[in-house]
Simulated scan of single mutants.
Amino acid sequence: MEVGVQTELFADRPATPVYVPAKTGADASTQIYPGDLFDFDLEVQPILEVLVGKTVEQALAEVAQEEELATLREQQRRYRELRDAELAERQRLAAQEHRLMEEKERRVAEGRAARTAALEARQRVAAAALVQGYVAELLPAVLAGLRDAGYLVRRLRAGVQEEFMPWLVQEVSEEIESLITSRDVITDIFIYFSYDNFTNLVQV
């Protein structure tokens, strides 16, 4: 039997199908029953506790470290203040010691000068007394020699005896009294500013 089929000439061509590669291997599937997976609300709590605990622990460690650094800075500040105060105190004590040494040297120099002045005053007093006695003994002999030689007239002799001699005696007495007063004042000053008093002053 012969059969013939004729397609329709104006029929639309169908779309080319998408290329799908051939399968390789075996298909697998998993069946998950209720209760097989973890309960999120129940299982997440320990994890959150661990995370929160670690975070809090780290935060506390950082806070403790910051407090320790602040304490170290405060200790350093107090140490610098104490060091500056000790340095200022050492400088003040050094300056005070320097002033005391200068004062001691000045007082010793004053005492030495006072002793020298007192010695000179005693020497001047002794010299004045010696001169007074020598003049008192020498003047009559000189006047007698001048009188015997004819150089001393009656009026000049009266002037010497009535004016010059009282004036000379008064001047010598005033000079001796001034020397004695000066010696007493210098002696009092020397006694007051002696080395022992200065030592006691330094110790106080």
Rank of each mutant, 00 (worst) to 15 (best):
M1V: 11
E2T: 15
G4T: 13
F10Q: 07
A11P: 04
R13Y: 11
T16C: 08
T16S: 14
V18R: 00
V20E: 14
A22M: 11
K23Q: 11
K23N: 14
G25K: 02
D27Y: 07
A28M: 13
A28Y: 13
S29D: 14
Q31W: 15
Y33T: 05
Y33E: 12
F40Q: 00
D41K: 06
L42E: 11
Q45H: 08
I47R: 03
L48H: 13
V52H: 01
G53A: 10
Q58C: 07
A59K: 02
A61L: 01
V63N: 03
V63Q: 02
Q65W: 12
E67K: 04
E68D: 14
A70I: 05
A70G: 07
A70Y: 01
T71R: 06
T71P: 00
L72P: 03
R73P: 02
R73L: 15
R77T: 12
Y79A: 14
R80I: 07
R80Y: 08
E81H: 00
L82C: 03
L82W: 03
A85K: 00
A85G: 09
A85F: 05
E86P: 00
E86M: 05
A88T: 00
R90N: 13
L93I: 05
A94C: 10
A95P: 01
H98R: 05
H98A: 15
M101Y: 00
E102Y: 06
E105D: 06
R106I: 10
A113H: 03
A113S: 07
A114F: 12
A114M: 13
R115H: 11
T116Q: 06
A117C: 05
A121G: 14
R122C: 14
Q123M: 15
Q123W: 11
A127I: 06
A128S: 14
A128W: 06
A129Q: 15
L130P: 04
Q132D: 13
Y134R: 02
Y134H: 09
V135I: 12
A136I: 06
E137M: 03
L139I: 02
P140S: 09
P140Q: 07
V142L: 07
L143R: 08
L143G: 06
A144R: 01
G145I: 04
D148R: 08
A149S: 10
G150K: 05
G150C: 10
V153T: 10
V153R: 02
V153C: 09
R155K: 05
R155F: 04
R157V: 01
R157L: 08
A158G: 02
G159Q: 07
V160Y: 08
F164S: 02
F164C: 11
M165P: 02
M165T: 13
P166E: 08
P166F: 10
W167L: 09
W167S: 09
V169T: 05
Q170T: 06
E171G: 03
V172F: 15
E174A: 08
E174S: 04
E175C: 08
E175T: 06
E175A: 09
I176W: 00
S178M: 14
I180C: 13
T181Q: 01
R183H: 14
V185P: 01
V185Y: 09
I186S: 04
D188Q: 10
I189E: 08
I189Y: 01
I191G: 02
Y192L: 11
F193D: 10
D196M: 10
D196I: 05
D196W: 07
N197L: 12
F198P: 03
N200L: 14
L201D: 10
V202A: 13
